[in-house]
Write a protein that binds this DNA or RNA. Structure first.
Length: 199
DNA sequence: CCACGGATGCGCT
DNA sequence: GCGCATCCGTGGA
């Protein structure tokens, strides 16, 4: 067991730097009694100030309350016909988070395929809603602690060289489009979005 | 109670 | 690349 769980101090920083540094780390899920893991290849930052796309921008509500709490907790919300998985960052009282948009499947492929009812490897965890479905994440995980090995957690991963990270505008946001807050593992096949924002 | 829209996904062209 | 199915939280009546 040489894998290190990412702890509070890692997340108690700005969403932008956390999003960038999460590229290449490992996401592990034990939700639903089955183990699944993947390498994060795409993440977006949502900022506490000057970011109209952030859910916390128009104040605290029952469903986004976790965003205003301490870092290192899960903020899960439903959208369209699925869910999105976020990690709260920064200070208490300031709504900021990192949205995990895609991972490269690593462990529990059979589980991922069954939950997704799809054999296409690229469609298992590419996109925030697909990722949640594959990893068994739903609103029941809203507010859980991500810094302990319980339901979901994140682990450090060792690499020989630098990870090639590319920056782009965020996907699907209708406000704050000019902000370059999306980070991807350059040329990784499991990154979502238009090709010009993957390479 | 009901209308509305969104950090989406799928199927079809 | 594009249209539309789908669904739940939110806010106004």
């Amino acid at each position: 067991m040489n894998s290190k769980v990412l702890s509070k101090p890692f997340f108690e920083r700005g969403a932008k730097i956390v999003a960038k540094e999460l590229i290449g780390r490992r996401l592990v899920s034990r939700c639903g009694g089955h183990r699944a893991a993947g390498i994060i290849v795409e993440a977006e930052a949502y900022l506490p100030v000057n970011d109209p796309a952030c859910h916390g921008a128009r104040g605290k509500t029952k469903s986004n309350a976790v965003m205003f709490g301490p870092a290192g907790f899960a903020y899960v919300y439903s959208i369209h016909a699925g869910h999105c998985f976020n990690i709260v960052t920064g200070n208490v009282g300031e709504p900021e988070a990192v949205l995990i948009r895609a991972v490269e499947p690593q462990l529990g492929i059979k589980t991922l395929k069954r939950r997704r009812q799809n054999d296409n490897h690229r469609l298992l965890t590419t996109g925030p809603s697909r990722l949640c479905q594959a990893f068994g994440v739903n609103r029941e995980q809203d507010g859980i602690d991500l810094t302990v090995r319980r339901k979901i957690w994140l682990e450090d991963v060792d690499y020989d060289g630098e990870i090639p990270v590319m920056v782009s505008p965020r996907i699907g946001v209708t406000s704050g489009e000019s902000l370059k807050l999306r980070f991807v593992w350059k040329n990784n096949p499991y990154v979502s979005g238009p090709k010009k924002w993957r390479t």
